[in-house]
Each structure stands twice: as C-alpha cells, then as structure tokens.
C-alpha cells in the first residue's frame, strides 16, 4: 500500500469508527458508554454528537469521492481496479475454498492479488457507503427532503440508515477484522495498513499466484524483457523494498 492508499484507508477507518460511535449514541441514549459521553462532554453532548457525526460523514464522503478519482485518474488506481474487478475465477476459487475447508480438496486455491474475501469486503464498502450517504443526506437536510420523500419516506430512510449501520459494523467485525486481526496467520494484526507491506510468508500463504507473477515480472525485467512502464516502475520500487525487508507491498 502506498502512503496515499494508507491515508485513504486511515481516513475511511477513522470516519467509520466515529460514525459508528456517534450514530449508535443517538440510537441507544441510555447505554452506559453514552451516559459516560454525556458526563464527559456536558450538557451540549447531544448537539456535539450530531455535529461530529456530520463532520465524520463529510470525511467519509470526501475519501470515497477521492477514491473514485484515484481509481480513474492514477495508473496505480486503474491497476488496482483491474485486479479488484470481479471475475469468474473468483467464484470458482470461493467454491474451491469451501471444498478445501470441508476436506474435499487437498489444496487451497492459489489466490492472486485480491481474493474473493477482499473483493467482498471492498465492494461491500461501495454498497454501504452508497446507502448510508444517501439516507444520511436525507436525514441531515430533513427540511428539504421531507416534502420530497414524505414523512413515510423519511421513516424508511431512518430505518435503512440504522440497519445498514448494523450490517456494516457486523461485517467489519466478523469479516474484515477476522482476516486482519483474529486470523491466526496474522494475529495480532496485519500491519500492512500501517507499514504498507506484508511478509513473504504471508504472501506465499494468501497471495501465492500474485507472488509468482511479481517474481516472474522481476526475473523478466532482470533479463531485459519488455514491460509496460507502469509495471516497470512499480516493480523497480517493489524490488528495492523486497530486498530490504523481505516483504511485499500489497
């Protein structure tokens, strides 16, 4: 992960966590931790909660929009999207993985740069952001949207905003956190979101096909074979880092 990507991820995670906290603080005002917030922030805690929620929402929208531009206008972004795009292979890999888990296959599928696990995660954020931003804007500017979507529509937007928040939180907790934290291979944490690198060992375990591809490209380059400029540059920088700490940038 480049620094740019790590900053994107960091803004996303920060705004997400703040949104989760300030959002559920509204829904469960008598929860002990919400009471604690009120005790700390005093009598205007409720108003601050709302303001912080909206500010975090703006950050989330901002990073999302930036990400779209990043995907369209940067080379690395376009390569990222090519790798991330869902292909038929992902379906077969997922089925094979289940088979492997259930002992019906000897070997785990050899994943490329992004496995179905990461793709589900990534596109779930698209879905979640879309629904949350849309309903969130309805709720934010209720005086404008009430006549448009009617009070009944406002009630539906409120319901969606709430249930989607639960779905997103649980998905992060049970899907994302499993693979980057609880997973015994990376426990206590996959540090890629901080350092930008993962270890070769982890690379061999989780992205063996991508490791092969990278090494092939490396050797081809060393043999003076033609490569596209982008990949060339990328490979060069990666080669440096690879030799430094035996790890691969995701």
């Amino acid at each position: 992960m480049t620094l740019n990507e790590r900053i994107q991820h960091f803004i996303l995670l920060l705004s997400f966590i703040v949104l989760i906290i300030t959002g559920f603080a509204l829904k469960y005002p008598e929860a002990l931790w919400v009471q604690a917030f009120r005790n700390v922030f005093g009598e205007n805690a409720f108003e601050w909660r709302g303001d912080v929620h909206r500010i975090a929402g703006v950050f989330l929208i901002g990073v999302s929009v930036y990400h779209i531009f990043y995907l369209i206008f940067s080379g690395r972004g376009r390569e990222f999207m090519r790798d991330m795009w869902i292909k038929k292979k992902d379906i077969t890999e997922m089925i094979d993985t289940f088979k492997y888990y259930l002992g019906k296959k000897e070997d785990k599928p050899r994943f490329g740069r992004f496995s179905y696990i990461e793709k589900i995660e990534y596109f779930a954020v698209y879905w979640g952001n879309f629904t949350m931003v849309l309903t969130g804007i309805f709720l934010w500017f209720e005086n404008i949207f009430l006549p448009v979507i009617t009070p009944a529509g406002m009630e539906i937007a409120t319901a969606i905003h709430f249930y989607e928040a639960i779905l997103a939180s649980l998905a992060i907790l049970f899907w994302h956190f499993y693979f980057v934290i609880y997973n015994p291979d990376v426990y206590p944490m996959n540090k890629a979101w901080l350092t930008g690198y993962i270890s070769r060992h982890q690379m061999e375990n989780e992205h063996p096909r991508w490791l092969d591809e990278l090494e092939n490209a490396e050797s081809k380059k060393q043999n003076g074979a033609d490569n596209s400029e982008n990949v060339n540059e990328l490979s060069e920088s990666e080669k440096e880092k690879l030799s430094k700490d035996d790890s691969t940038q995701l």
Binding site: A152, E155, I156, A159, Y163, E164, L167
Partner: peptide, 15 residues
C-alpha cells in the same frame, strides 16, 4: 408504516 416494516424485514434477513 409498511415501508419501514418491509425495510426492517429485508435488513434482518440480510444481516
């Protein structure tokens, strides 16, 4: 609020 009811049902299934 039937709309809310359906949204709730769908989301619970989804979740």
């Amino acid at each position: 609020a039937p709309g809310v009811w359906w949204v709730t049902l769908i989301y619970l299934l989804l979740i």
